[in-house]
Design a protein around this nucleic acid. Structure first.
Lengths: 214, 214
DNA sequence: TAGATTGTTAATCGATTAACAATC
DNA sequence: TAGATTGTTAATCGATTAACAATC
């Protein structure tokens, strides 16, 4: 499965379909059409059908897709078979919010270890996670078999933390610091830039307002 | 300026260029080439030149772009002339982290008002922001002339909050709830889905690991 | 069966990159 | 001037959508 050439966007959409299907199953919906899923997700039906083809689950004309089996196929496709541990670096306001956010969810992914430079925090248990010093990273990350890291530190520290994560063997980084990271080709980086997002929203909000006034 | 047909991606990149230029100016760099900016941003030089064309600032062959003037042009292009207020809905862990995050930055955008359903929070001042009840939204939002909202409430409440924001006159929404919102065409929505992002990272981290092992 | 939906290819669309004359 | 960079068009690339035979 993993070696097919699937684009980033498809994986993101599959993750969304998974959650929408969860809700459908909770509502006892056993079959769903591509156009229904499309409506909920905000995409076209053709898009949905194409994405679902990628996971290898086949619907049937007239009936649609069996929600439960489709969800299983999507999970089998995007999730690790055994569950995956995640390392969080930075336990400030944002880091703690991230901990709380992912703790509440029933995910295949769990924040297993947390790191911070603040000696006040190191050694303590925060939101149920033991907090380690950065120097302990290579040991802890390898021991827990973690290949995914989250960076929630200030801009100035972000690249240094990324370097440490990479050296410790991490292969994927979710970066909340508003700065591009330079990493080797065998490491995947996804950025969440809240400043950029808010500036985009502000820009297009004004545009929408102006269009109406014209 | 606002009526040109600029894509979302360009606006996002301009926001990034702005911050990179800030850092350059702080380092007393007065001219920069497109390929230098491109390297820092992680794009191609052609991409950068095309984006900068959009803001209408002209560099000169041989010298490059004057950092200070370019930054001014970018700011004039994407920022509102007077500064913009933002409404935050949901003052849980995430909401407070968002407050702290944007409070620290020197942005044209400021969180002006915050809303929550929790009667414990309503009326109090949190992170310097007075907290209002949802019912006060139409009044407060109009009074403060806010057209941008941030949704940081649980999934189940997100669509309801979006409807309220829209009714209050908000034209752009930054949505942190992992669910697509349905809003009128004259409202712009940007979604930050941390679960989706983390699942993508986990998927591609495993792929990177496997590619190496093959 | 008739009607609607699926899987899948071809056509379309938009965004990125390559290329190059004009310019400092 | 020579060399490198800019603004801008044309070529390329990839992703989305339209279309339709096969199927329930």
């Amino acid at each position: 499965m993993l070696n097919k050439n699937i684009s980033e966007k498809v994986i993101g959409r599959l993750s969304l379909y998974g959650r929408l299907l969860d809700a459908q199953i909770a509502d006892n919906v056993s079959y769903i059409y591509s156009h229904q899923l499309a409506q909920k997700a905000g995409f076209s039906a053709a898009q949905v059908r194409r994405d679902l083809m990628a996971v290898g689950y086949t619907g049937s004309p007239g009936k649609g897709y069996a929600t439960r089996q489709l969800l299983e196929s999507i999970r089998a496709f995007i999730d690790a078979p055994t569950g995956q541990g995640v390392a969080l670096v930075g336990i400030g306001n944002l880091g703690r919010a991230i901990m709380a956010y992912f703790a509440g969810r029933q995910l295949n992914l769990t924040i297993k270890v947390a790191f911070d430079t603040d000696p006040e925090k190191v050694g303590r248990v925060i939101h149920g996670h033991r907090c380690y010093a950065l120097d302990e990273m290579p040991e802890v990350v390898r021991q827990e078999n973690v290949i995914v890291g989250i960076i929630a530190v200030p801009v100035a520290a972000a690249q240094g933390v990324a370097d440490r994560l990479v050296r410790a063997g991490v292969k994927g980084i979710l970066n909340f610091a508003p700065v591009p990271l330079h990493v080797p080709l065998d490491v995947y980086v996804e950025r969440i830039d809240m400043t950029m997002a808010l500036e985009k929203v502000a820009y297009f909000a004004r545009r929408k307002l102006n269009l109406r006034n014209e």
